[in-house]
């Protein structure tokens, strides 16, 4: 059976893969990478995970040209998915910036290694974690974690910043209780180890 990497909204593929492999009885694995944009480094890590579980990759397929090209460059057995019927995927990874279109709903957990831009709301109960900045072009009412690998320079910016909880690097803060002014874009950053919320700097988006 072909293993299917999870959707961006539910889990990072690196976390999901060991569980998927445990359920797979065969050691020769067929892998559907779905919408994930994987470069050569990612694929190397993927092969390491497979190796660690005593598995071997038979072939992989992907909807992403970038993944197909990287895999082909590494000499892996790869083919594009036939049904390319989804022309505008929800999440698009470009040069370390993951752009996610659509609202994250309760229970969703969007994870990425670089910066993330969400073109929609983050509802209560949903989570975003990014290695870099979290930017929300909408309302942030869930939980956001910027700099989840330890970067203290990471920021959280939202058009409407009323999160349940904010985390930057290792710092944790509860969201403010009062409602923000309409039309005031705010950002959260680390100031001497404490998370502060202030009007967004126009230069904050790099």
């Amino acid at each position: 059976m072909t293993l299917q990497l999870p959707d961006h909204r539910s889990q990072h593929w690196k976390d999901a893969l060991p569980g998927l492999l445990e359920q797979e009885p065969s050691t020769a694995v067929e892998l559907d990478c779905g919408d994930w944009n994987l470069n050569c480094t990612d694929l190397q890590q993927l092969l390491q995970i497979l190796d660690g579980m005593g598995c071997r990759l038979r072939w992989l397929c992907s909807r992403r040209p970038k993944t197909v090209v990287s895999a082909a460059a590494m000499g892996l057995n790869v083919h594009p998915v036939e049904k390319m019927e989804q022309p505008s995927p929800r999440s698009e990874d470009q040069d370390g910036l993951l752009v996610h279109r659509g609202t994250l709903r309760s229970g969703d957990h969007l994870q990425c290694d670089g910066d993330v831009l969400i073109y929609g709301d983050v509802n209560p109960g949903a989570r975003v974690s990014a290695g870099g900045d979290v930017m929300v072009w909408g309302r942030l009412r869930g939980t956001a974690h910027a700099g989840c690998f330890g970067s203290t320079k990471a920021k959280i910016v939202a058009l409407h910043l009323r999160p349940v909880q904010l985390r930057i690097s290792n710092a944790v803060a509860r969201g403010p209780e009062d409602q923000p002014l309409d039309g005031l874009t705010e950002q959260a950053r680390l100031d001497q180890g404490v998370i502060v919320i202030e009007p967004a700097e126009t230069r904050s988006i790099r």
Binding site: R9, L104, R105, S106, G107, D108, N123, P124, G125
Partner: peptide, 11 residues
Amino acid sequence: RDADRVIGLLN
């Protein structure tokens, strides 16, 4: 909150 979760799954 629960409805929101369900809507995400339906989508």
